[in-house]
Nucleic acid binder design. Structure first.
Lengths: 259, 259
DNA sequence: ATTGACATTGACGTTGCGTAAAGGTTTATA
DNA sequence: TATAAACCTTTACGCAACGTCAATGTCAAT
């Protein structure tokens, strides 16, 4: 199979400009150039492009990518496993960023307070973190686990702080739910607020929110007696009430949820 | 207290060039300029810089930061939410990539074959989304309804005795997961069996099964340390392994996977 | 023959600064 | 008091990794 720039670009989800750029800097030269000057790519180039895009997704610079894939020690199978590890690490880093944003949103909404001093201290710590991540491998080899322990503790602290916040949100869900239950209307304002708080609470645990998952969990509260006991401890029927409210909140109530 | 560029820069842990740049683009103008043309910053500017750096740490672009801090004070939360959405989208794409790496490793080992198209899955979100939605619905109709019917019957007929059976199923999940974890391959046969058992277990609680909900719960096992502790009690990393297996199982990031 | 979708090579724009160059000002010390 | 070190200024080019014109050539179909 032979590909022109556009065809390969569309397949790879990149622009044709990128392919020309890669040709220009010698990252990926086409297999041949036809009589009209068109770039023609073949299987070998497709595979190589895939490799390039893999590393690019990791944030590796093109120069480093070139060093990796043109290097003599390059073994596809081994590199892929390293790849995977890096991807997972990057996802963790992303998760931390998301947590930070969540936290800031909470602060903006006045749920927690942060002084300027605290913020400023946070920057310095974060910069240390960044440095550790950048040169983490070197540091680990040179200085052992000292740095790693420090950063681990930091992560733990952050999680702990986050955790306290989550529990606070959880309590807020309960109190709002209690008031809402008194109204008896799962479509009412209070019940919908409770459902929204519950969504926020879930978002602390879930990377991505979907209505289906939310409704699913609400249903589980009714079906699993351990959860039911938790929500019904003050007023029997609260779990079912929350489920009804969430079903309305997610717009799943009118759909065929019975089967 | 008045600060020159260098003093403020050192305090904030940035370069003086950055301060001049922020002045240049109007992000942060000094309080005044003295007789020699030096930039002089005061408390107000220090506070503003801290705000800027705070958002910068979250990965927000300078333009967006400007919009946040120069706009009405209450729009910050909204902007942060948008930013969070971006981060979440990025995270989803990362998950797709991870799945792709898994498949590529499998392909390298000759377990499955990958077409050129498949090799680029995870790099392009839009086209994948379209394809996934097209084929996803078919699969859900075929595969989903079957499972839903089965679980519905089970849930309806669920007695106290069968509740014990659920716990037995839960144990089965754990033992299978333990064996699968030893293989290290979340796309492997054992891991996929564990994911399937986990789905069955969930179906005892949920009236309807969706891959989104399944994946969401799996993610929660990683994010909530109570669940993580439960799954990691024998082997650290088991919760994450289950999550990875379920993500592959549900095809959340990829349209077709035979495992 | 014409249209429209493709291809080509320049060449300048983008972000968030780094890094001189070429000079003026302040401060510390000899 | 002279001088060096350490600050400050503006101007301006450089970087990655392409995006986005512009001007022009090629291919398939009508």
């Amino acid at each position: 199979m032979e590909y022109t720039v556009q065809k390969l670009a569309k397949m790879a989800g990149i622009s044709s400009r990128t392919l020309r750029y890669y040709d220009e800097i010698g990252m990926l030269n086409p297999a041949r150039i036809n009589s009209s000057g068109y770039r023609i790519y073949r299987q070998k180039e497709v595979d190589r492009l895939q490799q390039i895009l893999f590393y690019r997704e990791l944030g590796v610079t093109l120069e480093e990518i070139r060093a990796i894939i043109t290097g003599p020690a390059f073994s596809a199978a081994g590199a892929l496993r390293q790849h995977r590890e890096k991807l997972l690490a990057k996802r963790e880093q992303l998760d931390m960023l998301i947590v930070n944003v969540e936290k800031t949103i909470a602060a903006e909404e006045g749920r927690i307070k942060m002084t300027d001093k605290e913020k400023f201290e946070g920057f310095k710590q974060k910069m240390i973190d960044d440095n550790e991540k950048k040169y983490g491998e070197e540091i680990r080899e040179k200085y052992g686990n000292e740095q790693v322990d420090r950063s681990n503790q930091k992560v733990k602290n952050m999680t702990q702080e986050q955790y306290a916040q989550v529990e606070k949100l959880g309590e807020e869900v309960l109190t709002t739910l209690e008031q809402a239950f008194a109204t008896g209307d799962p479509a009412g304002e209070l019940a919908q607020k409770a459902a929204d708080l519950h969504r926020q609470w879930l978002c602390f645990f879930w990377g991505s929110y979907t209505k289906e998952a939310h409704a699913g969990v609400a249903q589980m509260y009714v079906d699993d007696e351990r959860f039911t006991a938790y929500y019904d401890r003050k007023q029997p029927g609260t779990a079912a009430f929350l489920r009804d409210a969430v079903f309305i909140y997610t717009g799943m109530a009118d759909k065929d949820n019975a089967g």
